[in-house]
Design a protein around this nucleic acid. Structure first.
Length: 269
DNA sequence: ATGTCCCCACCTTGGGGA
């Protein structure tokens, strides 16, 4: 089972890219971020024609997340991150797909830093940490994936020098991510590629894609139940190389759900 | 400070966000 996360940077502009990628890579589940469209602007029919059922949560101009499932409809669990009823931003969706719990998130960018946007980022992160604590030891397999807007370490960026003041590299941001992982989550890409620089995002400035000056900010985290199923992980870099591409590339894991450990039976003496 | 690309509105340019 292949699960992917892809910040499309505008679903309307990127629909043809998205359809080409789905056709070629056939992910079973795809979590999308930055739809930048209202609910009524979501291309439900085109995706259904491509074989995908969908859940989505749009917003005018900014944010927006969706969960796609090949050959089935994702079963909605929640449409917002708990902890702040006043939060209007469309940044979280959670659904069940074939027994797997999938959380799709778009963590706030947080720039400029310091400032109210950075405060919002850290507050949102704390809510994510609190919610994740209820999922990490779940008897169900859980994956939390999306654009975390965190470069976890200096190894996850081409060169941190010009990014030192950026919200994505701040010690507070990294501490949140470290505390999240410390609950017991597996960072799939880093687990599969411990010694390799892996990037998922190359900004549009200064020919960063052409020079492979990237960042690793799209993450797929597995809870304890799911982690033993991790078979492979990677980045579909070819999507970033297309004309008029998103600044992110689809990032994925391959899971072998047959490896899900059954609840341990009561042992007879 | 800058670079580029997205979306929307004071709607075909300019501003905000990333």
């Amino acid at each position: 089972m292949k699960i992917a996360t892809f910040n499309v940077n505008g679903i309307k502009t990127r629909l043809a890219h998205l359809l080409r990628w789905l056709e070629r890579e056939q992910p079973d589940v795809a979590c999308l971020q930055e739809l930048k469209a209202l609910d009524e602007g979501f291309p439900e029919r085109e995706l259904r024609d491509a074989g995908y059922g969908a859940l989505w949560k749009g917003q005018r101009s900014w944010n927006g997340v969706a969960i796609l499932a090949r050959g089935t409809d994702p079963l909605e669990i929640r449409r917002e991150l708990p902890g702040d009823a006043a939060d209007e931003q469309s940044r979280y969706l959670e659904a069940a797909v074939n027994g797997l719990v999938v959380g799709c998130l778009y963590l706030p960018n947080g720039n400029p830093q310091p400032g109210p946007k950075f405060d919002y980022k850290l507050a949102w992160f704390e809510r994510l940490i609190a919610h994740a604590a209820t999922l990490v030891d779940s008897p169900h397999p859980v994956i939390l994936c999306g654009d975390y807007n965190v470069v976890p370490t200096d190894f996850d960026i081409y060169n941190p020098r010009s990014w030192r003041k950026d919200a994505l590299l701040q010690p507070e941001t990294r501490d949140c991510y470290a505390r999240l992982l410390a609950q017991g989550w597996t960072d799939s890409l880093r687990h599969v590629h411990p010694d390799e620089a892996v990037f998922t995002f190359w900004d549009y400035f200064r020919q960063h894609w052409e020079h492979n000056s990237g960042l690793r900010i799209d993450h797929l985290l597995l809870n304890r139940k799911l982690a033993p199923s991790l078979k492979a992980a990677g980045v579909d870099r070819w999507v970033r190389g297309e004309q008029k591409a998103s600044d992110h590339a689809p990032t994925w894991v391959e899971l072998d759900l047959d490896r899900l450990t059954a609840p341990s039976p009561k042992r007879k003496i």
